[in-house]
């Protein structure tokens, strides 16, 4: 064979795989790597070391995933606040009926005695009493006539204004 062809070139170049570093080189390489890392670390200014440590810490914590927890807690708190507000704002008709002063002792007819009261009060009053007579008798110590109140405003035959 007078000339180097592609195969010969490839064969010759493959021989270069056998070129190796001195014995023990690979065993010591890692130690040398650690030593250089330490030296490099010592040469860095303090602020840079602190910055890198902080960066490592944040990276290890995975701040992005942790940010979802405060968001979830905040959402739960907001929901709880909204629900509790709605619950406390609901009127309790039975309690109002018990706590309000008695103002009415007679059943009402559908005639014109109610002209001086507010139309809303009249309308509600006419539909249905808040508590029946029998119920009131059971809950009150002394038997009393039924009382009809609306929003703690006494309903009366008296006019709401004085002359």
């Amino acid at each position: 064979m007078d000339e180097f062809n592609d195969n010969e070139i490839a064969r010759l170049l493959r021989l270069k795989r056998f070129e190796q570093p001195p014995p023990g080189y690979f065993e010591n390489f890692l130690h040398e790597f650690h030593r250089r890392q330490r030296d490099e670390l010592l040469r860095q200014p303090l602020w840079r070391i602190c910055l890198e440590r902080a960066h490592d810490f944040m990276f290890r914590l995975d701040v992005r995933s942790l940010a979802s927890y405060p968001a979830a807690v905040a959402a739960v708190l907001v929901c709880a606040a909204v629900i509790s507000l709605k619950i406390y704002q609901q009127p309790e008709p039975a309690q109002i009926a018990l706590q309000s002063p008695p103002t009415l002792s007679l059943p009402v007819n559908d005639e014109g005695e109610w002209t001086l009261a507010s139309p809303v009060a009249t309308r509600i009053f006419r539909t249905q009493p808040l508590r029946s007579f029998d119920e009131s008798a059971q809950t009150h110590r002394a038997p009393a006539p039924p009382r009809y109140v609306l929003d703690s405003v006494p309903v009366s035959y008296e006019p709401t204004f004085r002359f």
């Binding site: 064969r11 010759l12 021989l15």
Partner: peptide, 18 residues
């Protein structure tokens, strides 16, 4: 040290220019 490698010797022995 490469010249003492057995595989290297075998590889080079088969190549006429080498």
């Amino acid at each position: 040290s490469i010249q003492n490698d057995k595989e290297f010797m075998e590889a080079t022995a088969t190549s006429s220019p080498v």
